[in-house]
Simulated scan of single mutants.
Amino acid sequence: MDYVTIYSTKDGNEIAVLKRVYNEEGIDYRIEDADHTGEVKRLQVAEKDKSKARELLDQTGFLTASQAHVPVRRRMAGKRWIFVFLAAFLLIIVVVVILMFMNVE
């Protein structure tokens, strides 16, 4: 039988709650170690129960809770260009200052 990962967490309490909910609803599930260290657990459900399991995740509020465990990686698109611009601006200032002191009259 094919299983699909629908939730992963480091919190054992979340897994215990989801086990209870899925047992009560009769959903076929299994729990695996995602990183083989025992910290991160993946909750997998049978392909036939996927939509019902996701609906239960949404109803119990775990869909928003799972996003707290995902590292947020924000990256500014122009960050590299800001550094290039600042470096070029600093280089121009250094050249102007050097030329001012080298100009002997």
Rank of each mutant, 00 (worst) to 15 (best):
M1W: 07
D2R: 11
D2W: 01
D2F: 05
Y3R: 01
Y3T: 07
V4R: 08
T5F: 03
T5Q: 15
I6D: 02
Y7G: 04
S8L: 02
S8H: 07
S8D: 02
T9H: 04
K10R: 12
D11H: 15
D11L: 15
D11F: 10
G12Q: 09
N13H: 13
N13D: 13
N13Q: 14
A16G: 13
A16P: 06
A16C: 13
V17C: 12
V17I: 13
L18K: 09
R20G: 08
Y22S: 06
Y22H: 05
Y22E: 08
N23I: 09
E24V: 07
E24R: 14
E24F: 09
E25N: 11
G26M: 02
D28L: 08
D28M: 03
Y29K: 12
R30Y: 00
I31R: 09
E32M: 02
E32Y: 01
A34S: 13
A34T: 10
D35I: 01
D35F: 03
D35E: 12
H36L: 12
H36P: 04
T37D: 04
T37F: 03
G38N: 04
E39C: 05
E39F: 06
E39L: 08
E39Q: 10
V40F: 09
V40M: 11
V40K: 15
V40T: 12
K41M: 12
K41H: 14
L43P: 10
L43G: 10
L43V: 15
Q44G: 04
V45F: 05
V45A: 06
E47M: 10
K48S: 12
K48L: 10
D49I: 05
D49W: 02
K50R: 14
K50T: 09
S51F: 02
A53T: 00
A53N: 03
A53Y: 03
A53E: 02
R54E: 14
R54P: 00
R54C: 11
E55M: 08
E55V: 00
E55G: 07
L56E: 06
D58F: 05
Q59W: 08
Q59E: 14
T60Q: 15
T60D: 06
T60H: 13
L63Q: 08
L63C: 02
T64A: 03
T64E: 07
A65N: 00
A65H: 04
A65G: 00
S66D: 06
S66H: 09
S66W: 03
Q67Y: 15
Q67L: 13
A68I: 14
A68H: 09
A68V: 12
H69Q: 12
H69S: 15
V70F: 04
P71I: 10
V72E: 09
R73E: 11
R74N: 05
G78A: 14
G78V: 10
G78K: 14
G78F: 12
K79N: 05
K79A: 12
R80C: 05
R80E: 14
W81M: 08
I82M: 06
I82S: 03
F85W: 11
L86N: 04
L86W: 11
A87D: 08
A87M: 15
A88W: 02
A88S: 13
A88V: 15
F89E: 14
L91Y: 00
L91C: 10
L91T: 15
L91K: 01
I92G: 04
I93Q: 14
V94A: 13
V94R: 10
V95M: 10
V97P: 03
L99P: 00
L99H: 08
F101N: 00
M102P: 00
N103H: 08
N103I: 08
V104H: 05
E105V: 07
